[in-house]
Design a protein around this nucleic acid. Structure first.
Length: 807
RNA sequence: GGGCGAGUGGUGGAAUGGUAUACACGCAACACUUAAAAUGUUGUCCGCGUAAGCGGGUGAGGGUUCGACUCCCUCCUCGCCCACCA
């Protein structure tokens, strides 16, 4: 018997696949047979860790089965190689980001090939290649020309360590997502994409998607649609100068409980009414302090609320003409709604806390709570609210908004938490933003024929303290001729957020070498939308939202004919270290996949990752189980060499074994389809256990086992397939189809329960009637013992399963 | 504070209204061996019992049902996401 030499076998077949170009995907295939299978591409950190394997290996099992099922499967791979992580890592090691990135790509390509996946490497996409970012810049220009990219000076999240601004989505807990430095607010000129224009569509179209509910909910919350009303409060000062202050509320039903009004520190009313505010010094001091507070500090909830009254002016509640004081307080956010709120301490937790601290009046307007002691934020029946008394909160919101609109004192309003996407980065390692500034002609887009605007190979790529991109120091880069007047002009020096690059990479895979377009229309049509997208849940509101936005925008520009890029989405779980902690080098709990491959082989590692547990769940790594999978492969191997000792062909296997075989075909196919790899493998193990017990095993049956195994363990499967005498790769074979007639058995074990406790099990014919089952059951010795002397109340019969006698 | 998810043997886990613990790991005994490793066989939820068997048992408590790991309610613990968004 030949030994199962996994090292030799795995090397051999990986070479064979490469040499025969078996994974090269053709574009022209009749419609309906194309299947776009995508995994989230990695950024080239230089090390393919177990998390990548957990994403890619089981996903490849799926892709391989689809291919064998007759689909023309596109399963591409590439690198998300621009951006902060790569740049920070390079800086830490004092290597140029470009050298660092491309060295890593080389290493990781090799590591990725070791997974034994069916990637079509001829379609590789690298976002930092000029051939790619040419089109990223082209996309920027389309956004610009269509009014979806604009420049604005405004407070932005600034990471003092990374020396760059960050998108809202990249600030986690008030800290930089990448380096965990506290983020501060800084006024900077920056480019934004108008994602808010699509807020409503991004929200609505979630219904169409076959995505994890959790991920959809996260997007819903991020978009944060809320329906409410804008209410205009008149401002009154001693000098009787009237101005208006607009507030946004979702609880207009509580307006009779409004006892003061609060504006955010950055609200314009403070500077507009300077002359009317009698305690201006105190107010300006507060505003100045709030501006310098770290975002984090401002967000911490257990922090005491603070604020200052704007003395000398009052706001008039349009519903009851009551004059109420106006405060400035940093618990009101300048960027949301109108930056001003009506405070209803009786029915809003934040207002309640503030009012308690400053001794402000608390007036109940919705009954149901005990507002002397605690805030009541639920709906109820209106009290103390003039003509609206007695209405439910829900009805009142409707009526009061109508009243507001009739009297021109405000209107219905829908607000979103979603903010425009800030895409400029004051960093080196990114796609330059293709804009030119001319003294005469102003802001000019680079003309499309001049793309790409190449990232210069500068020596000084370190981020700068003063908040300008390192590119600003490259005279060669910044000085350019104006595309219109040909006079001297300067380039934009900011680069784009790496999430811009990754928002459209999946489009490029269908036509990666196209020099005239980002992708050919027909190729796009034949492959999109993506049939299944597999990747981590950590991208729920970043990459996945941006990509949806890109798709919708490109559709509106006339380049795409679909609304959503990813029809179906699935997340793999996160593998933690053996200690249950997140894997990290500093904790020393990192599992090295290369080491596992060396000891157990690629097939065993792939299979163990599938077998560990439910794919979407993840959990702590536990190495001990991998031996079980290895043993399984050894046994499959051995069984082949023991085949000769049995009757190979022509002999009939038992009916029950044949049934098991077809049940297994069905289960494995369905389980892989549903990404339930762990139970698919256990079904294969059960089949092998039975096969080993069979005295007579037709070679065709063994061949079926090898086929069902092939997506999981492609190398050993190829070798065994060849040993069975086949000339072609097993992956050119057709996936087995179960025969429902063979699954059907003539008998089954009827479970007998007496008062819901199992008392007996015996074999009966499939399809017997309730009466027959009852008769047979009552004849049983074990049953008689229990029911003698008692009367049967009823019997519940579940065909082909059980009978429950109630006494 | 809000949202979502999870809690099952010594361990990873299976079962989504019908025999709880499939499959695997680990452990124990036995076989093979001078011995060990590897491999194979058998056993392995807990209690009582030589056994047949009986009783208990899926974080806790309650409910619905002939029947609940599964559905509903209350609570506890853990994880993830969001969080002064009016």
């Amino acid at each position: 018997m030949k030994k199962y030499d996994f090292k030799k076998i795995e090397k051999k077949w990986q070479r064979y696949w490469e040499k025969t170009k078996i994974h090269k995907v053709k574009d022209s295939v009749k419609s309906g047979k194309n299947f776009y299978h995508l995994v989230m591409f990695p950024y080239p950190s230089g090390d393919l860790h177990i998390g990548h394997w957990y994403n890619f290996a089981p996903a490849d099992v799926y892709a391989r089965m689809k291919k064998m099922q007759g689909f023309n499967v596109l399963s591409p791979m590439g690198f998300d190689s621009f951006g902060l992580p790569a740049e920070n890592a390079a800086i830490k090691r004092k290597i140029h980001p470009k050298d660092w990135t491309y060295k890593n790509i080389k290493v990781m390509t090799k590591q990725l090939k070791s997974i034994g996946a069916m990637y079509d490497w001829s379609r590789k996409v690298i976002t930092s290649d000029p051939e790619y970012y040419k089109w990223t810049q082209w996309m920027f220009l389309q956004f610009y020309k269509n009014g979806l990219a604009y420049k604005k000076k405004a407070p932005a999240n600034w990471c003092p360590k990374c020396h760059t601004v960050l998108a809202n989505e990249q600030v986690v807990d008030g800290k930089c997502e990448r380096c965990e430095m506290e983020v501060i607010q800084r006024e900077i000129e920056q480019w934004l994409f108008k994602i808010t224009k699509y807020a409503d569509e991004l929200l609505k179209d979630l219904d169409k998607l076959d995505w994890p509910e959790k991920t959809k909910i996260m997007q819903v919350n991020w978009i944060g649609r809320s329906e409410g009303a804008i209410i205009k409060f008149k401002i009154k000062s001693e000098k009787l100068k009237l101005e208006e202050l607009e507030v946004f509320t979702t609880r207009i039903d509580t307006i009779f409980g409004c006892t003061y009004v609060v504006v955010a520190p950055e609200h314009e009313i403070i500077s507009n009414l300077k002359s009317q505010i009698s305690n201006l010094d105190e107010v300006e001091k507060y505003v100045e302090e709030a501006r310098h507070k770290l975002e984090r500090e401002r967000l911490t909830e257990d922090k005491q609320k603070s604020g200052v009254e704007l003395k000398g002016i009052k706001a008039i509640n349009p519903f009851n003409n009551e004059k109420v004081p106006i405060f400035v307080a940093d618990y009101v956010l300048g960027h949301y709604g109108t930056g001003a709120v009506m405070a209803v301490p009786a029915h809003d937790k934040r207002d309640f806390e503030f009012a308690k601290k400053y001794g402000l009046k608390i007036t109940e307007s919705v009954s149901g709570g005990d507002i002397k002691n605690q805030v009541y934020t639920k709906d109820g029946i209106l009290v103390n609210s003039n003509q609206f008394i007695g209405l439910t909160s829900e009805k009142a919101r409707e009526e009061m908004t109508k009243w507001l609109e009739k009297n021109k004192l405000g209107s219905k309003q829908i607000n979103y938490k979603l903010r425009d996407w800030l895409v400029s980065r004051q960093r080196y390692w990114g796609a330059p933003i293709p804009i030119i500034y001319c003294d005469k002609c102003g802001e000019m887009p680079v003309s499309e024929k001049d793309l790409p605007v190449k990232l210069p190979n500068v020596k000084n790529y370190l981020p700068t303290e003063e908040g300008r991109s390192p590119l600003a120091h490259s005279e060669k880069f910044i000085n350019v001729k104006c595309p219109k007047c040909k006079g001297s002009a300067k380039r934009e020096t900011d680069t784009m957020d790496t999430f811009v690059c990754s928002s459209w990479y999946y489009l490029r895979y269908v036509d990666p070498k196209n020099k005239k377009k980002f992708a050919d229309v027909n190729k796009l049509k034949s492959w999109f939308p993506i049939d299944i997208y597999i990747g981590g849940a950590e991208h729920a509101v970043l990459h996945l939202l941006y990509s949806r936005f890109f798709t919708k925008a490109l559709r509106d520009f006339g380049y795409l004919n679909f609304d959503e890029p990813f029809d179906a989405l699935r997340h793999q779980g996160i593998i933690l270290g053996p200690d249950g902690q997140k894997m990290s080098k500093s904790k020393g709990n990192v599992i090295d996949p290369d080491e596992l491959v060396k000891n157990f082989g690629v097939d065993a590692v792939r299979m163990y990752l599938c077998f560990m547990g439910e794919y979407s769940q993840g959990g702590p790594w536990n190495s001990t189980g991998i031996m079980g999978v290895k043993r399984f492969l050894e046994r499959v191997w051995k069984l082949h060499f023991h085949l000769e000792a049995r009757l190979l062909s022509g002999s009939l296997a038992s009916k029950s074994f044949e049934s098991l075989l077809h049940k297994t075909i069905k289960k494995v196919s369905e389980d892989i389809e549903n990404l339930k790899f762990n139970t698919a493998i256990s079904a294969l193990m059960i089949l092998l256990n039975e096969m080993e017990k069979q005295e007579k095993l037709p070679v065709t049956h063994y061949a079926l086992l090898v086929m069902l195994l092939s997506p999981f363990a492609p190398h050993i499967a190829e070798e065994l397939w060849k040993n069975l005498g086949h000339k072609k790769s097993i992956f050119l074979e057709k996936w087995p189809q179960d025969d429902s007639r063979k699954i059907k058995e003539n008998t089954y074990n009827l479970v007998v329960q007496i008062n819901s406790k199992v008392r007996d099990v015996f074999e009966v014919s499939v399809g017997i009637s309730e009466a027959e089952a009852k008769d047979l059951t009552l004849q049983r010795e074990n049953v008689r013992k229990w029911i003698s002397g008692k009367s049967i109340q009823k019997a519940i019969f579940i065909p082909n399963k059980l009978i429950n006698i109630v006494i």
